[in-house]
Each structure stands twice: as C-alpha cells, then as structure tokens.
Design a protein around this nucleic acid. Structure first.
Lengths: 120, 120
DNA sequence: TTCATATATATGATATTTCGCATGTAACTA
DNA sequence: TAGTTACATGCGAAATATCATATATATGAA
C-alpha cells in the first residue's frame, strides 16, 4: 500500500468517512453504513468495492449482511494515520455517530438493520 | 484545514512528494524542487500554487528565488500526519534526497541553484 | 534599457473520477 | 417455488483534475 494510493482513497468524502468510521468502530455492515452516511446504497457500495480492491478493507458475509472492517494486512503506519486523523477531527465523525445511535434506538426510523448484539 | 482538503492535496504524486520533502527538509526553493523532482517548472509551480491556496505552504521571495515551507498556521495533526508518512515510507523520499545531494555536489549537473549555505 | 534567470499563469486538450439509474445476484422466508 | 431484503455492478453523463505549451511577470546584472 503506497502512500499515494492510500491518500487517493482518503481524498473523497464518502471513502474518508467510511475509513475513519471503521478505524474507530471496528466493523459495520453495508446497510448500517448507508444509513449512517445518509447516502444511496449503490454509492456506498461502489466506494466500498474500491476500498476492497485497494486491500484497505476486508468484507465478510454473515447471512444476508456483509460486514466491512479494516483489512488485517493493512500496514501499521496506515492504521496509525487513520487513528490520528479520526482522533484529531472529532467534528467529522460526531454527526455520524449520532445517526448510528439514533438507528439503534429506533430501528425503523432510518432503515432496516441487522440485530444489534451490543454497541462497543 | 479539513481532513478531506488535506487528503486531496496529498492524492497526487507531485504534491505528495513536495509536502513530504518540506515536512522533513524545512525549506526549498522552486528550482531546487524542480530539479529534485525531475519535472517541468510549470508543473511544479502549478502544484505549489495549489498548495499555497490551500494554506498548506507559505512562500517567501529572497532575491530571484522563491522559497516554500510548510505554513506556520498548519494544524499540529496535519504536521504529525506528514511526519509520520515521511518517516514510515523512506523509499519514497530516498531517490529525491539523492537528487538533492547530487545537485549540491555538482551545481551545473542538473540545473542552476541558489548558493547553498549548508545542508541540514 | 536590455538581457538572462526564476517563477507564475492562461489556455485548450485529455484523462480520470464520480454519479444516478437500472439491473443483476445472493441469501433468507413463506 | 415465488417474494423480499441486502448488496454489487454495468453504463453513459457530468464534473473534475492534470497536462504541455506558450506567454507573462519579477528580479538582478550588464
């Protein structure tokens, strides 16, 4: 993973938010991301596909849902860079966490979702 | 400086190298950058102008030469991000430092240059 | 003033990215 | 089986980025 390739992935609003979210939150399925980001499903899915092709993300199907997380092979400096960016720019993620919270409080309010075990 | 804006600036090879170089080296003039990067002067100048407009870089004219450095107002997390990226990807900058060295050893070999006080 | 060097920018061509919309596929349910 | 939900992708349009070339400006020297 070259720095240039990483920065190209981070240079788009949707992909940036996805990567920072997954850096902090660990794992989310596509429908959760779609709801949290308030974007169309094809748009989210297309960006996820790109991040998958760059080996930044790994996906895992569990039943109907496909969960995405940072790829285990991702270099440490890239992980540190994502963590640094997320920690130092809380304003960027705050509204997204609000959406995630609202979604788990009122499941039908925004979109469907998988059964939530517990929020980490 | 939003994360998105920073990453857009870093998502191009020439701009990435300029920012990492200046993050580590402190200050370079346009002709030094042009030689080190082995690119045309208009190309380097155009990317410098963009980084200036984004307030990532500051320029200062001294005689015939214009020196660029990281803008003093640049946020700490952005500085840390640049330093982290440069430190963890030495392969990216190594050939550029070789060019800088060669340029200072044999001034006429690649292009003209300002009088070099001392290399840091 | 004239010339040379250093740097900046305008312009139009080309390449890349992003998008919406429609449609395809996979898994579960009835 | 048919229907529904979750997700992926093909495709052309629109927006954006990048580039080479030519030219403009600024400084210092002659």
């Amino acid at each position: 993973m070259s720095p240039l390739q990483l920065f190209k992935c981070l240079a788009e609003d949707t992909r940036l938010k996805i990567l920072l979210l997954l850096s902090e939150h660990g794992e989310l399925c596509v429908c959760e991301l779609t709801c949290v980001l308030e974007l169309s499903q094809p748009k989210v899915s297309r960006h996820l596909a790109e991040l998958r092709k760059c080996a930044l993300l790994a996906d895992e199907r569990r039943g109907k849902w496909v969960y995405y997380r940072l790829n285990d092979t991702l270099a440490d400096w890239a992980r540190e860079l994502l963590a640094l960016t997320a920690a130092r720019n809380p304003d960027l993620l705050a509204p997204l966490y609000q959406n995630l919270q609202r979604m788990h409080d009122k499941p039908q309010s925004l979109c469907s979702q998988p059964a939530s075990e517990e929020s980490s």
